[in-house]
Amino acid sequence: MKFGLRPLLLAAVLGAVAVPSAQAHRMWILPSTFTLSGDEQTITVDGAISNDLFFPNHVAMNLENITISAPDGTTSKPQNGWEGEIRSTFDLKLDEQGTYKIAEEGGFYFARWEEEGEEKRTRGNWERLEKLGLLEKPDVKLMYAGRRAETFVTLGAPTQHVFKPTGEGVEMVPVTHPNDLYQGEEASFKFLIDGAPVIDQAITIVKGNDRYRDIVGEFKVKTDAEGIVSFTPEEPGRYWLQTRAQKPGEAQGRKMMLMSTYSATFEVLTP
């Protein structure tokens, strides 16, 4: 079994641990093309939450949560959107030279409490928890789980504007541009939590088409002292990356655990 990443390098330099994990639901945004040339191009974009990368087989992505950032920073919503049972799709017209970001952002509140000696739990937006009267329960434990799924598409030469961090939750700032990744060349990404580099953070990387492999080939690499992970993709193809962090904090004026998940889809080309 050939892994997408160089196991020796990862193990030696980055302290990697190959995780033979069970199949998980993965959120992904997949553009039909990552790198384009010309003055004006149109791509189609798929979004789903599935087990296999990148085959829809579970739940469609909610297009309302998607924002497209153009190279100059202006934002727009998906065009020609369609939501099926297990996959959403939309068009994106690129008429500005540079890098576009397509991002799905959202989150849920989770509540856990006891009722007649039994543990209960539910999730939803803040209004829902309020309506259910859960916020008044003295023993209720709250958590907020925010997520950000991204992908990047470049018309012409890659640009940096869309990587400006918001300072909230887990974010990725590329050292190597995500539309400039090549087989056999080291790639580096920097990770931030609330705008600050996050050290020793585990980043999971999986190559697409795991359906055709007996071993998922999921790798965990850890960020260094500057919040940077480096890896060398050995095979061209489409990859998916995810990381998750949690810390106690405050939301809606209440103390609670704040969880943040970041995922991204990127392409590795042959040089």
Binding site: T35, L36, S37, G38, D39, Q41, T154, G156, A157, P158, D180, Y182, L269, T270, P271
Partner: peptide
């Protein structure tokens, strides 16, 4: 110009 990027090496090193 749509297919210029398929000359991957040239596109990366210069064309783009």
């Amino acid at each position: 110009e749509t297919w210029l990027k398929d000359m991957r090496q040239w596109w990366r090193r210069s064309g783009r």
